[in-house]
């Protein structure tokens, strides 16, 4: 089989061809240089989809919830794409991507596209290429794009700089997790879900969360106040309410004008991340050239690491 140039895949992807979309997603994940012009075109065509992030500690029930939410979205007639991220092994670089295990119900519906992605060493809960993947699915016409992050702990809050609406999932019975995660992840929530409410200690988790939200409440009348939604997968509870809240959040963003601020925040993060990646790739390419030479200066203490870095970046810029 011959290599299909990425620019030739673009019109097919825009027309909704699953194979073309899937191949472009692979190239986004791999950071394939040949595909950059194609991604640029797709970026220009994107911007219509409502992007929703689903995050929470490992095993909190994200995939189960995403599956149910996708069904609810389909029931309203909208189409939905899912990007579900799992960690790569730091040892082999490989991964086992298991989010599909909970999404068996979604098979056979052409209005749903589900893709697994590995982090490939990226920190922050997303994968390298996640946002290009969102562009591709958005441009291909999916009305909503759901991003399931890696199971996150404290500091992995990148999702709030990637999605228009962020849902944080907490499950009862995972210890004193509310205390543990409140610092980072809880603050980014537009909507809180307490999953597994068929379990006995769910009420305490709901009460704890509501208390915390009260403490953090600001005076006046903000455009949006985060709420707590209890869900249970086996009892089919809470998902309609969750979708209604997600839709209301989108309306609130639009009517308050806050959506522009969110978009600007997402763009800023992407610009900075992309710059970092370009620099990192160039470092790799010049590992044996300028980097090695400057390293010599540092090890002889002729130059501090900071001055050498300044010099290195200036010189790498000249090679661009």
């Amino acid at each position: 089989m011959a290599y299909i140039p990425s620019v030739d895949l673009v019109p097919r992807a825009l027309a909704g061809d699953e194979r073309a979309i899937a191949r472009l997603l692979t190239r986004a994940e791999n950071g394939t240089a040949e595909a950059r012009p194609a991604f640029d075109t797709l970026f220009a065509r994107a911007g219509r989809a409502h992007v929703v992030g689903i995050t929470g500690v490992p095993g909190s029930g994200k995939s189960t919830l995403v599956s149910k939410l996708a069904k609810a979205i389909r029931a309203t007639g909208r189409t939905v794409a899912i990007v579900a991220i799992d960690p790569s092994s730091p040892f082999s670089g490989g991964s086992i991507l298991g989010d599909r295990i909970r999404m068996g119900d979604l098979g056979g519906d052409p209005g749903v596209f589900m893709r697994s992605m590995a982090t490939r060493g990226a920190l922050g809960g997303l994968a390298r290429g996640t946002l290009e993947a969102v562009d591709i699915l958005d441009a291909a016409g999916y009305d909503m794009v759901l991003i399931e992050t890696v199971g996150v702990g404290q500091d992995e809050v990148d999702i709030a700089r990637a999605a228009h609406t962020t849902v944080v999932v907490s499950a009862p019975g995972l210890g004193d997790e509310i205390q543990a995660i409140k610092a980072g992840v809880l603050e980014i929530a537009d909507i809180h879900v307490v999953s597994k409410c068929d379990k006995p200690d769910a009420n305490k988790t709901i009460a704890d969360l509501k208390n915390m939200l009260m403490l953090g409440m600001v005076a006046g009348k903000p455009a949006w106040r985060p709420m707590v939604i209890p869900t249970s997968a086996p009892q089919d509870q809470g998902v309609t309410e969750l979708l209604a809240a997600i839709d209301r959040h989108r309306v609130a963003l639009d009517t308050s004008g806050e959506i522009s601020a969110r978009r600007a925040m997402i763009d800023e993060r992407r610009l900075i991340k992309a710059s970092e990646e370009i620099l990192r790739d160039r470092f790799e390419q010049h590992r044996h050239g300028r980097l090695a030479a400057l390293l010599g200066n540092v090890s002889r203490r002729e130059m501090s690491p900071h001055s050498a870095a300044t010099r290195l970046i200036a010189e790498l810029g000249e090679y661009a």
Binding site: E18, R19, I21, A22, R23, L25, T26, S88, S89, F91, S92, G93, G94, S95, I96, L97, G98, R100, I101, R102, G104, G107, G108, F113, M114, R115, S116, A118
Partner: peptide
Amino acid sequence: LRDAGMDVIYTGLHRTPEEVVEAAVQED
């Protein structure tokens, strides 16, 4: 296969052949 550096998607149990193929296409 993961330990050999591959990305491995696991479907879970009880899939139909058609579901596996649909997933394989979307996962490329």
